[in-house]
Amino acid sequence: MTEYKLVVVGAGGVGKSALTIQLIQNHFVDEYDPTIEDSYRKQVVIDGETCLLDILDTAGQEEYSAMRDQYMRTGEGFLCVFAINNTKSFEDIHHYREQIKRVKDSEDVPMVLVGNKCDLPSRTVDTKQAQDLARSYGIPFIETSAKTRQGVDDAFYTLVREIRKHKEKMSKDGKKKKKKSKTKCVIM
């Protein structure tokens, strides 16, 4: 069974824990209790493949930012979460993405942009803004509501699919490099 290491990042209060708990335990946590770091595991079937999701729910508070490099190193894919009623959390996505790329030393890291709290009427981040940002990053965008469960499975499952595509691409690139290195030079 394939294991996928997913990391949920975003500013404090955007609903990272609520999304994760909704996926794992099928219930909505409405009281806000700032996370330092929590880890969850769940076995699911995605596109006919049974897999184990190892999900790291991270601290959004700035005082825990020193811990970010460590979990970013171990993560295979990242859910970059903002709240649709919090423009600052949307603007912060850029910083999370840049930090992930720096730590992973790669421009090509599996990510999904997630606009959470889409059940709320007080939207300050337009869907088109988020779609445009995701398009500019070359990553999928999904709106979710941890409260109603809308888009929750889709967000995590899409990230797994992005990781699969990335692994497939990397193995193809690896095979191309191996083929090239088999060419021999004969000096007579």
Rank of each mutant, 00 (worst) to 15 (best):
22 Q>M: 06
24 I>N: 13
14 V>C: 14
28 F>V: 03
43 Q>P: 06
13 G>H: 11
45 V>P: 05
29 V>H: 13
10 G>N: 01
35 T>W: 00
19 L>Y: 06
8 V>S: 04
46 I>C: 06
22 Q>V: 02
34 P>D: 03
41 R>Q: 09
59 A>N: 15
61 Q>W: 15
23 L>T: 15
38 D>F: 02
32 Y>R: 01
45 V>T: 08
15 G>H: 00
3 E>C: 07
31 E>L: 05
29 V>F: 07
26 N>K: 06
20 T>M: 10
15 G>E: 01
38 D>S: 03
38 D>L: 02
34 P>M: 07
29 V>K: 15
25 Q>G: 11
16 K>P: 00
53 L>T: 10
7 V>L: 06
22 Q>T: 08
48 G>C: 04
21 I>T: 15
25 Q>Y: 06
20 T>I: 11
40 Y>K: 03
62 E>I: 14
33 D>N: 09
32 Y>G: 02
14 V>F: 10
44 V>K: 03
59 A>Y: 15
41 R>T: 09
55 I>K: 01
10 G>D: 00
25 Q>D: 03
38 D>Y: 07
4 Y>G: 08
15 G>D: 00
51 C>A: 11
54 D>Q: 05
44 V>I: 09
52 L>R: 12
34 P>T: 02
46 I>G: 08
60 G>R: 05
20 T>K: 06
25 Q>S: 11
21 I>Q: 13
7 V>T: 10
49 E>V: 10
62 E>R: 06
15 G>A: 02
24 I>M: 09
19 L>K: 11
26 N>I: 06
37 E>D: 08
54 D>F: 01
46 I>W: 09
36 I>T: 00
31 E>M: 07
17 S>F: 01
47 D>G: 09
35 T>S: 03
21 I>V: 13
43 Q>D: 04
16 K>N: 09
7 V>M: 08
57 D>E: 05
40 Y>T: 03
8 V>D: 02
21 I>L: 12
3 E>M: 11
3 E>T: 09
14 V>W: 02
45 V>Y: 05
55 I>M: 08
63 E>H: 06
9 V>F: 14
61 Q>C: 15
35 T>L: 00
60 G>S: 06
44 V>P: 04
11 A>K: 05
61 Q>N: 07
31 E>P: 04
46 I>D: 11
8 V>Q: 07
50 T>E: 04
12 G>H: 08
25 Q>N: 09
50 T>Y: 04
55 I>H: 02
28 F>H: 05
42 K>N: 09
60 G>M: 08
9 V>W: 11
18 A>R: 05
51 C>F: 11
2 T>Y: 10
43 Q>C: 04
11 A>T: 09
63 E>P: 08
27 H>D: 08
5 K>I: 03
9 V>Q: 05
41 R>H: 08
52 L>P: 05
27 H>V: 10
24 I>G: 12
6 L>N: 02
8 V>A: 05
20 T>N: 15
59 A>Q: 15
56 L>N: 04
14 V>T: 13
15 G>F: 01
33 D>E: 07
26 N>W: 15
51 C>E: 07
31 E>K: 01
47 D>P: 05
25 Q>C: 08
15 G>K: 00
60 G>P: 05
58 T>Y: 14
56 L>V: 06
5 K>R: 14
54 D>E: 13
63 E>T: 11
15 G>C: 02
53 L>S: 07
17 S>I: 06
20 T>D: 15
17 S>T: 14
9 V>E: 03
6 L>D: 01
39 S>C: 12
28 F>Y: 10
41 R>M: 10
18 A>E: 01
12 G>K: 01
35 T>I: 01
42 K>L: 10
44 V>Q: 10
17 S>W: 00
14 V>D: 13
28 F>N: 01
6 L>Y: 05
12 G>W: 05
34 P>V: 12
19 L>G: 12
16 K>A: 03
